[in-house]
Amino acid sequence: MNGVPVEHGLILAALLFTLGLAGLMFRRNMLFVLMSLEVMLNAAALAFIVGATAWGQPEGQAMFLLVITLAAAEAVVGLALMIQLHHRFRRLDLDAASRMQG
């Protein structure tokens, strides 16, 4: 039993993160964008856990808890916005909501 090198854990986190990022960039449907965001947050949380277990310190797990809190808050607000978007435009096309040019 040699254990898992810390690099492998971080590579997994990087893979998940870039996958989520790619989804964020090329999806137009807001639901998928939100799910991509969840994937990215999850990857960040994974990196924290990897760090915590590698150095045997509980701080990483505490950070994981905060990241989960953040993900919950983000999902709630994002979904509320999505319902509003659907209500106003009858579809989930993010490009439709470009009137503010912001």
Partner: peptide, 27 residues
């Protein structure tokens, strides 16, 4: 673009000198 970023990340991770091994101790 995402693949490029992944490459950069991977190279950074692999060039790092962490060297730690996770043996599965419980926290």
């Amino acid at each position: 673009l995402a693949a490029l970023l992944l490459l950069v990340l991977l190279s950074t991770i692999l060039r790092g000198e962490a060297g730690e091994v996770i043996s599965g101790e419980l926290i």
